[in-house]
């Protein structure tokens, strides 16, 4: 059987999710037995115009991104959103709450006139996406599960329950009980509650589950001393793209 070809692409992002793929180190040799990587700017110089599976990192934030993404979509049999920016819009969407002209001036100063920007959006706002790898950065184990699932025709496992489940399994003290706000109750799990396990609150990088109770979460954040504005600004860090 011919090995499927794989290519990596990036839009507005830090390329940290692709870095996580290259960090698979001890598993990369096994990965290469499964697939042919034909384009991966971060780790190789070769390029290719044909590929079966495209991993796309980053959100869409410029007009010229749209035809490029549409081109990738046409060539790829399977399109995977790699990480928060591509999957849910991510932190790039913070700018969506400001005037775009002001945003350009903040970033580029006197050169602002040379740049164009549009509201930041996840890639599925532009093209159809088959699979999602959530997280900032994405989780290596989920990448392995997705690739092996695609190869073997199995459905990949993506949790649709909140971080609280994994946080309780880790036997952490609830952040709210420590007097700290946390987006764990509404955020998609899969990260093994890594932030709360190491003492930080959940910032919601994996996006919302399909079954959230935002009203109750907001009430609880207010009960714990956050104003509505503060609570909303927490939601906006990763969850600024409004569907």
């Amino acid at each position: 059987m011919k090995k499927p070809t794989v290519a990596f692409f990036d839009f507005t992002c830090c390329e940290g999710c692709q870095l996580e793929v290259s960090n698979l180190e001890d598993k990369l040799i096994d990965l290469l037995k499964l697939v042919d990587i034909v384009m991966f700017r971060e780790v190789m110089s070769e390029k290719s115009d044909t590929y079966d599976i495209a991993f796309v990192e980053g959100s869409i934030s410029r007009e010229i991104d749209i035809p490029r993404l549409e081109g990738i979509r046409k060539k790829a049999k399977i399109l995977v959103a790699l990480g928060s920016c591509a999957a849910i819009g991510g932190i790039n969407c913070i700018k969506n709450f400001k005037d775009l002209e002001d945003v350009k001036k903040i970033v580029y100063g006197k050169d602002a006139g040379h740049f164009n920007t549009i509201l930041a959006q996840p890639i599925d706002a532009v093209v159809k996406v088959e699979h999602y790898l959530y997280g900032c950065p994405m989780i290596k184990e989920e990448f392995v599960d997705l690739v092996t699932s695609l190869i073997s025709g199995k459905k990949p496992v993506v949790p649709n329950y909140p971080v609280c489940v994994e946080c309780k399994i880790q036997e952490n003290i609830c952040m709210f009980h420590k007097g700290v706000y946390c987006l764990g109750p509404i955020t998609r799990a899969g990260c093994k509650a890594i932030c709360t396990t190491y003492g930080n609150s959940c910032e919601g990088c994996r996006g919302l589950t399909d079954d959230v109770n935002i009203n109750s979460q907001t009430d609880i954040m207010k009960e714990h001393g956050l104003s509505l504005d503060e609570a909303l600004s927490k939601f906006k860090l990763y969850g600024g793209y409004l569907r």
């Binding site: 329950y161 489940v165 309780k168 764990g184 109750p185 109770n213 109750s216 979460q217 609880i220």
Partner: peptide, 13 residues
């Protein structure tokens, strides 16, 4: 249900 976060903590615990 209006208050319920659906977080599943009660099941795990």
């Amino acid at each position: 249900a209006k208050r319920d976060l659906g977080c599943g903590a009660c099941n795990v615990d």
